[in-house]
Design a protein around this nucleic acid. Structure first.
Lengths: 166, 166
DNA sequence: ATTTTACGTCAGTGTTGTTGACATTCCAAG
DNA sequence: CTTGGAATGTCAACAACACTGACGTAAAAT
């Protein structure tokens, strides 16, 4: 299991256990930075990350159903429901009964919901844009490649199915 | 704020709002993949991510104090204390009163703690190694650059201060 | 001697995950 | 057409883990 740094040439150096450990820690600290700005904003509204995720993916796919969202977010429907309920009560999300299948609820952001989504994603995009600018396009391409390779296959498929601009 | 894709040349394409949004989603899905294996293992022991983080950084810096850990993990002492207490009770972590400063508690992993840490980090390293292998060293270098750029400055300083193999 | 630091603990609260029970709707087999 | 099961979503209760605030102890610093 352990690959010794002494035995690794340049081409393998990035695969030593300690290099990998450093990569793990990089993910940990980076993800915290990545969520820091939205977390601050959400706190002002009394929301948490779960609300952010819901708002984000409803914005990404307006009219999506609760079941769809469940699959993407990877949580139980009960957990998602609590979040959706508060968002609906607060007038950020609208839930419309399906026309073809009345069991389904189609979810849409209201004007207020769109405004919150923009506030959150502006902050998060700014951090990502600054990071991208600091490192250049080649590094960004590598970044995206590694992230995709790290996803669980089912979600990687979903991720790749998203058009770059939809 | 919005940069239109139509106006962006090749060099700027990766900075459009939609490209950035895709990057945000990549982080979300990748981080979940990144934590999936340890989460499964931790569940068998009745632990959570908080325990994982504590065990990881105690292993990284044996003899670290509670206050040190607090700063690295970015949680309150009450929150960390709950986790440490269970780890100590279960015999995974040892807390030794400081010799120079008797107010401090120095934290060490026991044999059992080292075993759990290895089980967790083996799983996580395997995923990262597979991802690295799939994309090659150049992509990995870019990955690391972007992650570093995304960290909060204070943690980036700490991260960079860690030797690659300590 | 007083203040500050390091650590631990108790109590209370909020977000977010879980399971269990239940209502509604759709669909297909009898 | 009716009935039973599957799918969708809601409500209630509980657990994990974060937070704040208050308090106590011991030791170091001033």
């Amino acid at each position: 299991m352990a690959q010794d740094a002494r035995s690794g040439g340049e081409a393998l150096l990035f695969l030593t256990d300690e290099q990998l450990r450093k990569g793990i820690e990089a993910m940990f600290f980076a993800y915290r930075g990545f969520t820091a700005d939205p977390d601050r904003i959400l706190q002002q509204y009394g929301y948490g990350r779960a609300h952010h995720r819901a708002v984000h993916f409803i914005h990404r796919s307006p009219g999506t159903t609760v079941n769809n969202l469940l699959g993407i977010l990877g949580v139980t429907k009960q957990s998602l429901n609590r979040v959706l309920r508060t968002l609906i009560e607060d007038g950020l999300v609208e839930s419309r009964v399906g026309t073809r299948d009345k069991r389904e609820r189609h979810l849409f952001l209201t004007e207020a919901g769109i405004a919150l989504e923009r506030e959150l994603s502006d902050a998060q995009r700014k951090r990502m844009r600054d990071a991208y600018r600091a490192v250049g396009p080649d590094a960004v391409a590598g970044f995206r490649k590694v992230l995709e390779a790290m996803m669980e296959p089912e979600y990687r498929r979903y991720f790749k199915s998203l058009k770059e601009g939809e």
